[in-house]
Design a binder for these strands. Sequence first.
DNA 1: CACCAGTACCCCATTTGGCT
DNA 2: AGCCAAATGGGGTACTGGTG
Length: 287
Amino acid sequence: MPKHVLLSGETLEYPRPTDAVAAYLARLSAAVGDPTIDEHRFIELVYSPNNPLLDPNIMPGRGTVTKAVLADPTYHVMQDLLGRKRVALGTLDMDKVRARYSLTVKEAAERAGVHESAIRQAIAAHRLSSVKDGTRHMLDPAQVDAFKPSTTGHAAPLEIVHGSVPGKRLFIKHDGNLKLAPGDWGELGPVPREARHSRLERWTKVAVIAGTKEDARFWELAPGSDVQTIGFEPFAVHGRFKVVRQINNTQQARQAFKDSEGARSSDVVLELSHPVQVVKRTKQSAG
DNA sequence: CACCAGTACCCCATTTGGCT
DNA sequence: AGCCAAATGGGGTACTGGTG
């Protein structure tokens, strides 16, 4: 299969073109270095009804990018040639573009509140653009912020700080896998009651109660698309969720939490290299 | 460490089949 | 024909293991 190195640094393989498509690609490549062709004219060439890659029958006098065309890597080669034309004309500064693409995949995943693989697959599917820094993909923070992953599939994990300190507390009930962050285990001593950092995976429903003994609030959460944070410092639930129910009345909040089903946040599995231990709720830590 | 491929899982929209 | 529930497929996610 023919290969094309994109401005982003990525190598794109595209299907062996027909004679007509190959000729059109050659024409566009020549136009990149042709000073008599300006950007407007180049765009006209790309979206011409004569471009054999596009569909000429949908819009009169213009080639249309259909779903099939969008899925064809050859179209992305043509778009890259447009980018190269802009670079040649000085209307696109790749140094400035590269400066804007400042996030690694890991940083982008943290920022978007999704798994790293979700970012990589979005890049592969051209739903997120990236530039290559050596072997690393780099992403634009603005695009990452605008990235709206589907809410289908597994729910994105929630980052949870729970426990109790004098005057404040936050507990949850859930149907997922709650794992305590290794840093909170210390030297195999008892899990500290205060501010335990945990990660909740594979969840569909979470009940949260937070506040003080006299002023408690209740939230019922379901997987959602927006990154949110609820709770009271230092306690928090952070991640992609939506609030399906909120109760600000202390008595009703306590009753709602009591009625909620699921494992309690005090029953956490330790995420460590040594054998997994389950920490059971005790009278002392029940609060 | 970063990337990639494969797998399992989930939700939603559409299709299919049975019932009224 | 219309309605409803089950089955199916597509699109998307997280996770794991292998590779360079």
